[in-house]
Design a protein around this nucleic acid. Structure first.
Lengths: 342, 342
DNA sequence: GGACGTCGTGAGAACGCTCTCACGACCGGA
DNA sequence: TCCGGTCGTGAGAGCGTTCTCACGACGTCC
């Protein structure tokens, strides 16, 4: 056979050009819709593209343009529980909505353990993506280190734990926690406990710091018996609440550092015969969907997720556009959402 | 400046070759560890790679090898609830564990709506991935269609809804549902209800079919009042159970088509003052982590997830290896896990 | 009617890699 | 001594794009 059109692989630019009776360059122009093409040529090419079912080869294109038009959202999480966190789902939804009418593709990469994190680091460095958004960081994560060593545009979801200079977008976790705790205090509650998030994550740390600050500012003292650690899961919240109840049966309010944990806490409270909010007032964090539908509906701290995802994309796109790493930080205000639990 | 080593971008093979004093071909051989390299050359190259921090450009490599060494797991789901489904998390965990010690990378793609599905289809067709695993399919999904039109290796998680010939791996959903329902019947329960999954998903359909089959086989009749539709979420399970209770207050058992829904159902039951399993026996499906920890621990149907993910990878890899689409189907046996809820 | 833009087009050189092929160097067997 | 084989190596041709240039064919303006 001579060089027929029907080869094993997909059709190439050359084949389209041949069929359309123009040069490779013209086909390329049509495909990337450059204005400098005559209507006739354009039509001919479009027809050829159609009949050959031509799809440009991205590898070849990326090789010369040095762009892949895809960005990665990497979840640097050792266990798969992130997936069950509604916060994460919201971020993914927000990101892909934001990217929907751009040329950009979004890929999710999940990393558990050092080995996989290195694999992901390699993946990113090899030029598969134009930039990465890193979320759900723990203090022992390697990825910020690995990626900081490259020129890859990078944005963190959440303030970097070690003070490293990397662009990031975060909610004012501390401020939100202060507001939540102060609400509880202003309600006349005297024994305000807290279920914290993981203390190796910035959201866990900051929300705990906010709680402490509010308690101290009110003239109270921070009682260790009123503090229990959770892990942002419902089951963890239930466990922590049970523990709290046994250590401080007289508590009359609790600030829970995430809504899924708050749901678990309410269950534990109920199991112990306490009424919410009559006996114990509860405030959560995140304003997840579950907060509105749980029983009772949860008073919680809302983060402007839409704004945050939009900012992340903006920061990343700026870096990609300019070719320069930025270290811009954006912290978004939170707001208290009053419902029935406090 | 002449062609110095320090350019703006990353170092290339040529630069490494120059530094090591060998040819490009030799460097390539070392990088892909071909045996035909003398120890001295190998050492020199490795040193050069080290000092230049050389990372091969995947685009260039893929362009010639026609492989990307990455496979995609695509979630063709219109709402982001998949993420909260523990089944999904298990699949992701299983897949990446299975791929951990291979060269293969795993990327997750999430598609909501026709527009994004087309975008993902394009992404896949453009040569970003060597193969795709499709999960969580609904009947109106475009992706099987879009991808079936390509030569891309493809494996479905779950039997294709429209009988199309595509390789797939599935659990014996029908068999599992039959076993669950028969257990309930064998316990002497006379009014066995069901909370189904979405009826546009094969797991929802098959588990419902299994329930019907078991009821009919036992000589009973399928009572519409005993059937309510859920959506595989906890909230949906709660809603459906509440509905069931109002339509058929005399029910004494319920087969719930997923564990998260079963957890919701138990809550609804409890809210209505029914004891589990004394008043109403409950069987779930999936053997999710939550099944063991919920109160009471759930009797449920376990799927061999590890086996299933291994099979998906195997089927996909076979296709990639051979360059041929296969239509092989593998259905894995389920097993009943007896706990306290039935 | 000649000089000068603009406009559509094609030739051809990249991009960074892999892979075939040829070529010397070396070895063992006749 | 010569021949055939292996072994390490390098030259060079691709892979399918984009993009810079150069080049004719037009106007348009003096």
């Amino acid at each position: 056979m001579t060089s027929t059109g029907t080869r094993n692989g997909s059709p190439t630019l050359d084949e389209v050009a041949q069929l359309a009776g123009v040069s490779r360059a013209t086909v390329s122009r049509v495909v990337n819709d450059s204005p400098r093409v005559s209507p006739e040529a354009r039509l001919a090419v479009q027809a050829a593209v159609e009949t050959l079912r031509y799809v440009p080869n991205r590898m070849a294109r990326s090789l010369v343009t040095r762009r892949t038009d895809t960005i990665a959202l990497v979840l640097s999480e050792s266990n798969t529980q992130v997936f069950s966190d509604p916060f994460f789902a919201s971020i993914v939804r927000g990101l892909s909505a934001r990217l929907a009418d751009t040329e950009l593709n979004l890929v999710l990469l999940a990393a558990r353990g050092a080995r996989e994190q290195e694999k992901i680091g390699r993946y990113a460095r090899q030029g598969h993506v134009d930039g990465v958004i890193l979320m759900s960081l723990h203090s022992d994560d390697l990825l910020p280190d690995i990626l900081a060593g490259t020129h890859l545009p990078l944005v963190l979801s959440g303030r970097p734990l070690d003070g490293r200079s990397i662009a990031y977008v975060d909610a004012d976790n501390t401020g939100g926690a202060v507001a939540a705790t102060e609400l509880l205090l202003s309600l006349g509650r005297r024994r305000v406990a807290t279920v914290t998030g993981p203390q190796d994550m910035v959201a866990g740390l900051d929300r705990y710091a906010g709680y402490r600050a509010a308690v101290e500012r009110s003239g109270g003292r921070v009682d260790p018996d009123l503090i229990a650690a959770g892990d942002f899961t419902e089951a963890g919240g239930m466990r922590a609440m049970t523990e709290l109840l046994s250590r401080a049966p007289d508590l009359d309010a609790v600030f829970v550092a995430s809504d899924p944990m708050a749901v678990g806490a309410v269950q534990a409270l109920r199991a112990a015969g306490r009424r919410v909010p009559d006996d114990v007032a509860v405030v959560g964090f995140d304003d997840a969907a579950v907060a509105a539908t749980s029983d009772p509906p949860l008073t919680t701290v809302a983060q402007p997720l839409g704004e945050m995802t939009a900012l992340m994309v903006e920061l990343l796109l700026d870096q990609i556009e300019s070719g320069e790493r930025s270290v811009e930080a954006r912290v978004c205000d939170t707001s208290l959402v009053r419902r029935a639990s406090a």
